[in-house]
Amino acid sequence: MLLPSLENLACFEAAARTLNFRTAARAVALSPAAFGQRIKQIEEQVGAPLFERTTRRVQLTPLGLAMLPRARQCLAMAEDCLRSAMSPAPAPVELTLGTRFELGMSWLVPQLGKLTRRRPEVTLHLYFGASDDLLRRLHDRSVDCVVTSARWSAASLAAETLHEERYAFVASPKLLQREEFSRPEHAARHCLLDIDATMPLFRYLADPMGGVGRFAFARHRWVGLGAAMKTLVLAGEGVAVLPLHMVAADLRSGKLKRLLRSAVLARDSFRLVYRRDDPRGALYAKLAESLRAAPIQ
Rank of each mutant, 00 (worst) to 15 (best):
L124A: 05
T116Y: 15
G47A: 02
V239D: 05
Q111K: 10
F181A: 00
R100D: 09
A227E: 15
A27P: 00
A248W: 00
G254R: 14
V147G: 04
V143H: 05
A154W: 08
W152P: 03
G226C: 09
L291H: 09
T55H: 11
E13T: 12
A27M: 05
A154F: 11
H139D: 06
R118A: 14
R214C: 04
T96D: 06
S31L: 01
A24M: 02
A85P: 01
F270D: 01
R56W: 02
H220A: 08
F181H: 05
L63Q: 13
T116Q: 15
L68I: 06
S153P: 01
S142L: 11
S131G: 04
Q177K: 11
S106V: 11
R137H: 06
L162Y: 12
H190L: 11
Q177I: 08
D144V: 02
T18S: 14
L50R: 09
L135N: 09
L287N: 03
L251S: 06
R271N: 13
P62R: 07
D132L: 06
Q41R: 15
R214K: 14
R292I: 09
V264K: 13
F169G: 04
S290P: 08
T18G: 08
K114D: 14
A130Y: 07
A228D: 14
C145Y: 00
R26E: 15
F217E: 07
Q297N: 11
E165K: 10
V264H: 05
A71N: 03
E180V: 13
A249S: 15
A76E: 08
G236M: 06
S262W: 14
M199Q: 15
K230I: 07
L60A: 05
R22F: 03
S131I: 13
R56C: 07
R252S: 10
F215D: 03
R22P: 02
L95D: 04
L162Q: 08
G47W: 05
F21N: 03
V122C: 12
R276P: 04
F101Y: 13
D194L: 08
A71C: 10
A66H: 01
D277L: 00
R275I: 04
R271C: 12
A263V: 06
V46F: 04
S269E: 09
R271D: 14
L272W: 01
F12C: 05
L176T: 07
S149A: 13
H245R: 12
A10W: 01
Q41N: 12
P208C: 03
T55A: 14
F217L: 10
S106R: 15
L176C: 06
